[in-house]
C-alpha cells in the first residue's frame, strides 16, 4: 500500500474493499446513464415500429457481429491477463493486456468504417439527416439514437484503451505483482462492463429487423 493511504485505511483489505466498492458505484452510475438512453430508444421504437425495423436493416450486420466477437474476445484476454498476474506471470499478463488493447483498436476501426460509410449515404444524426433511401422521421430518430448510443459506447472503449495503456505502463515499471494488482483488477472490471453494454446495443441496432 502506498504510504499516503496508510493514514486513511487500517489495512490493505479495507482499502481494497473501498476501491472495489467505488468502482461498482461508478458502474452503477454508468448503468443509470445508459438506462436513460435505452428508455429513449424503447419509447421511440414503440412510436415508430416499422421505421425502426426498416432502419436497422441498413446497419452493417457483418461489422456488428464481428465487433461482438471482437469485444467478447477482448474481455477473455483481459480476464486471462488478470489471472496471469495473480499467478505472478507478469510478462504473460502484459501480452494479454496488449491483446485486449489491440482488439479494442480493431473494434474502434470497424466502428469508424461503419460511421464513414453511413455518413456518406446521408444517414447522419439529427438535423443533418439526408437519406433519400430511408426518408422520414422514424429513420432519422433511429440513426440519431444510433450515433448517440454507439458513439457514447465508443468513448467508453477509448477510456478503456487509456486504462489499459496505464496498466501496461505501470506493469513495465514493476508497480504490480502477484500479490498487489488492485489497479489492474479495477481496469479489467471496467472493461467487462463496456463489453456488457455492447451486448445490448448490438441486437437493438443491428439485429431486431
Amino acid at each position: 500500500m502506498q504510504p499516503v493511504l496508510d493514514a486513511h485505511f487500517e489495512d490493505r483489505p479495507k482499502y481494497e474493499h473501498a476501491a472495489r466498492l467505488g468502482l461498482w458505484v461508478f458502474i452503477g452510475s454508468e448503468v443509470l446513464f445508459f438506462a436513460a438512453l435505452f428508455t429513449l430508444y424503447a419509447s421511440f421504437r414503440v412510436l415508430h415500429p416499422a421505421a425502426f425495423e426498416e432502419a436497422s436493416r441498413h446497419t452493417d450486420f457483418a461489422k456488428g457481429a464481428a465487433n461482438t466477437v471482437v469485444l467478447v474476445t477482448s474481455s477473455l484476454a483481459a480476464a486471462l491477463g488478470l489471472h496471469a498476474l495473480q499467478e505472478g506471470a507478469r510478462r504473460r499478463a502484459a501480452m494479454l493486456f496488449a491483446l485486449t488493447s489491440a482488439l479494442a483498436l480493431v473494434f474502434l476501426w470497424l466502428k469508424a468504417a461503419e460511421y464513414s460509410s453511413h455518413l456518406a449515404e446521408g444517414l447522419r444524426p439529427g438535423a443533418a439527416y439526408a437519406s433519400s433511401e430511408l426518408p422520414g422521421e422514424g429513420p432519422r430518430i433511429f440513426y440519431t439514437l444510433y450515433y448517440l448510443m454507439t458513439g457514447l459506447h465508443a468513448l467508453h472503449v477509448l477510456g478503456g484503451l487509456g486504462a489499459f495503456a496505464w496498466v501496461l505502463w505501470m506493469l513495465r515499471r514493476g508497480a504490480w505483482n502477484g500479490s498487489w494488482h488492485l489497479g489492474v483488477e479495477l481496469a479489467v472490471l471496467y472493461w467487462h462492463f463496456v463489453d456488457l453494454i455492447w451486448l445490448y446495443l448490438w441486437p437493438l441496432f443491428y439485429l431486431v429487423r
Binding site: 477473455l76 483481459a78 467487462h192 462492463f193 463489453d195 456488457l196 451486448l199
Partner: peptide, 11 residues
Amino acid sequence: AKASLVALFFM
C-alpha cells in the same frame, strides 16, 4: 443471458 455470464464469471 450473455450479460449474466459476463457479470457472474468475468466480473
